[in-house]
């Protein structure tokens, strides 16, 4: 009984893919497709897609510096609270100063024309963003967003 309840209320997926720029689009589309079971607003899907795109791009450019590596993306949704939890993890170089990295307009790669807005976008489009990083070991971005309640009225 309790197990059956548990399985209906939450749903989780995890994908692991190569750190390649062509997988940035794949990652955000995979999450968007997974989200549809919550019947989110179009705007909410766009918000999550943007945040996922930023996190995965960070892993490709900064975590692995364009080199080889694996990125883990997990997504858990809770149908009752209408919350979605996303983790994007890399085993790359890590971030020396997380606080600095989160400042808008700050970038360590201006030569790549990075705008320094990645974390600002994640923060703007998600309800909360946590960054766990250890230099030399990697980075894990944890974020969540709560979707609007649908008010359904029977005619």
């Amino acid at each position: 009984m309790s197990q059956a309840e548990g399985t209906t209320k939450t749903n989780e997926m995890e994908i692991i893919f190569d750190s390649k720029s062509e997988n940035e689009g794949f990652a955000r589309v995979a999450v968007a497709a997974f989200l549809t079971q919550l019947d989110p607003l179009l705007e909410e899907v766009s918000d999550v897609k943007t945040a996922v795109s930023e996190a995965v791009t960070n892993a490709v450019i900064h975590g692995y510096r364009g080199g080889e590596g694996k990125i883990r993306l997990s997504c858990r949704l809770d149908k009752e609270s209408r919350k979605i939890y996303i983790e994007v993890e890399d085993k790359g170089v890590g971030i020396e100063d997380v606080e600095k990295a989160r400042e808008p307009m700050f970038t360590t790669r201006p030569e790549l024309e990075r705008s320094g807005m990645g974390f600002a976008f994640m923060e703007a489009f998600m309800d909360d963003v946590e960054v766990e990083s250890t230099p030399g070991e990697g980075t894990c971005i944890k974020m969540y967003k709560r979707f609007e309640e649908w008010i359904t009225q029977s005619l």
Partner: peptide, 10 residues
Amino acid sequence: NFMDSSGIGV
């Protein structure tokens, strides 16, 4: 219909 901060850099 989609642009992230990379577009801002461009």
